[in-house]
Design a protein around this nucleic acid. Sequence first.
DNA 1: GCATAAAACAATCGACCGTTCTTTTCTTAT
DNA 2: ATAAGAAAAGAACGGTCGATTGTTTTATGC
Lengths: 199, 199
Amino acid sequence: MARTIGSSGAKTMEAISSAGLDLIFEFGYEGMSLRQLAARVGIRQGSLYNHIQSKQDLLLHLYDRHMRMLHAALDTALTGAGPPAEQLATFVDFHVSYHVQRKREVFVVNSELRSLEPANYGRATELRRQYERRLIDILDGGAADGTFEIADAPVTAYGILGMLSGICTWYDPRGRLDRAALSALYVDMVLKSVRAVSR
Amino acid sequence: MARTIGSSGAKTMEAISSAGLDLIFEFGYEGMSLRQLAARVGIRQGSLYNHIQSKQDLLLHLYDRHMRMLHAALDTALTGAGPPAEQLATFVDFHVSYHVQRKREVFVVNSELRSLEPANYGRATELRRQYERRLIDILDGGAADGTFEIADAPVTAYGILGMLSGICTWYDPRGRLDRAALSALYVDMVLKSVRAVSR
DNA sequence: GCATAAAACAATCGACCGTTCTTTTCTTAT
DNA sequence: ATAAGAAAAGAACGGTCGATTGTTTTATGC
């Protein structure tokens, strides 16, 4: 026996990415073994190397894919947003929704940065820095026209992002709050925290 | 050669805990090897087992030690705090200060929970739940007497804790803000976010 | 100062790690 | 129909892992 009926490269790579995300979410990058991953995909461990160059390469692939999606989705969400308060509300709503829908991706990206090798780490943090920059710019804009009261835009941004990013560590879709209620709650909190007039 | 001059059980265990914290902070629990740890402590790897039962036991030890300190320190900080707004301000100030001073402990505890075996995991999350409970109670108190406007106390608490706990992932003591300034900024943000009258 | 316990050593275990290589089978374009 | 290439199986590799054992050395209480 060797190659099984119906196998296809693209589908297998997608299965590897998806299962890899699950396993890293559950056990961490170091804690996941390629044998585990192969077993879950339904192939032998050696066969993984028809699709990835190395374990590190898989992590980088997952990271890049996620960050590209995140930036693109944020672009779409912010298109046509008006004054700073509305921009901020839109940003928060987007961020919450994205984190609820993609818990695993976000958690992996936030917690496994340190497992990236130095060369990859630099590029990865730069992508994250760009994302943070988007929020800082919104805060600066609101501070400039007097909408917001902010002591330090970057630190405020880190605080907001920390608050929202924590969601993926505890949110349970079967819980008390649905996505919309959660988003509304956090939009309200954030706007108040920078003393913006609520929409 | 065997036991070295000046060796002492308690001192060695302390060195193991300290070095273990550093290594887990840097490489993660799965990423740290006991050989690495022993080398940093200055003993052979087998000698570690004179002080710990297993690698897992070390992680649990670090977790317990940290949580006990955290609860005790919070008790002290909250002693004699007055009305809800002051309690909340005290809580935030305490939490920020603690996170700044004990970056490594907090990061390890927050990010390596999943590496605890099921039996240990349950007890560990219970300790964390108790800590969250302290904040939820403060929020409930403020909501009851009209000081705070809160949609959902637990979710608000998770938001606040996420915001503050993120500090240990980016804070640099050599940076723009010192501990006091950082604390003041976050106290202000949190109080405003629940629409409490500032002190 | 001697007996006992504590703490370090060296050596080793089996298991598992990421990765490579060869062989076989399936798919697809001609 | 067939050749070519992709994708799988499967065996094997050198290393490293956490953990155990037996021995030797040091510290300490009587």
